[in-house]
Design a protein around this nucleic acid. Structure first.
Length: 272
DNA sequence: CTTGTGCCCTGACCGC
DNA sequence: TGCGGTCAGGGCACAA
């Protein structure tokens, strides 16, 4: 379940080796994952050059020559890797082949991931990037921006954190970690949050995501970096996956419930 | 506008 | 050992 920090980790690992490579061709399996179509992808991709790699929310965007964009969303189990990883070969759905002889593989056990190849003018609409909200780690993302997005609406805190059209990149794990860090129950109604709560939340969003990046992501189920190396942030999680374990801040125990359709972990005494 | 449900998929895990 | 059930949860469609 790569979220913003995991995707950012991949992009940072990818960037130095990917930038400048020229694509000679591609091998596509699992046709349904590729848009607009596998046939078009295989026909169009050859000869394009990777100019840079960026991240938008949880999307990986390869900026290619000829104003083309190759966009990948890993969803749940997608992985990018330079070398075929043992036991994962049969899940490879796309291989990019470069003129220098190297390859970039995209594997996806559950086939939820998506790959798009579109011209610059269409890719935001085709991928859904156009619907993304603010980048929570962006330099220009201020407390006022955050407060404007989250106040004056109904619904729970957790549901709002998961919405990609408000802030882009938070998923289930970081949503829970953010709530804990802010000392707020994930079930709190946005309408009841005070100015102080919004301050804590804004700080928690930036802190938790930055910590995740610092530790190269969470490898709690499937995530690995581009070379197959695991992240370290699972060792720093305060609540996610710690159902029944001791809270690291108080003497209580972490509870698990279901909220916004997701498994939700929290400390009932630290989070109010 | 908001919530809830189900779907897409497969592997891991649990109880029997 | 095997078998069935449940869970994982990103994003979407759809119903209420």
């Amino acid at each position: 379940m790569p979220e913003l920090p995991e995707v950012e980790t991949i992009v940072r690992q990818l960037r130095p080796d990917a930038a400048g490579k020229k694509i000679s061709g591609a091998v596509v399996k699992g046709r349904s994952l590729i848009l607009p179509s596998a046939e078009k992808f295989e026909r169009m991709i050859g000869g394009l050059k990777i100019l840079s790699v960026t991240r938008q929310g949880k999307f990986i965007v390869f900026n290619l020559s000829k104003k083309m964009k190759l966009v990948i969303h890993l969803r749940m189990t997608g992985r990018l890797m330079w070398k075929k990883q043992k036991g994962r070969e049969k899940y490879i759905v796309l291989t990019l082949i470069f003129t220098d002889g190297t390859c970039l593989h995209f594997s996806d056990v559950r086939k939820f991931g998506r790959v798009w190849l579109y011209p610059e003018q269409y890719y935001k609409k085709a991928t859904g990037i156009c619907r993304l909200g603010a980048d929570p780690l962006g330099k220009s993302f201020s407390f006022e921006d955050f407060r404007r997005l989250f106040s004056g609406r109904n619904g729970s805190l957790k549901a709002a954190l998961l919405r990609q059209d408000l802030i882009a990149g938070v998923g289930n794990i970081y949503a829970d970690e953010i709530c804990f860090n802010a000392g707020l129950s994930p079930a709190r109604k946005l309408a009841n949050l005070t100015g102080k709560d919004f301050k804590s939340l804004y700080k928690a969003v930036r802190f938790c995501l930055n910590e995740g990046i610092k530790h190269c992501g969470v490898s709690v189920s499937d995530f690995v970096g581009i070379s197959g190396r695991k992240g370290l942030h699972q060792n720093y999680l305060q609540v996610y996956g710690r159902h029944g374990e001791k809270c690291r801040r108080c003497a209580g125990f972490i509870h698990k419930t279901r909220l916004a359709g997701r498994g939700t972990y929290y400390c009932p005494s630290c989070q109010r």
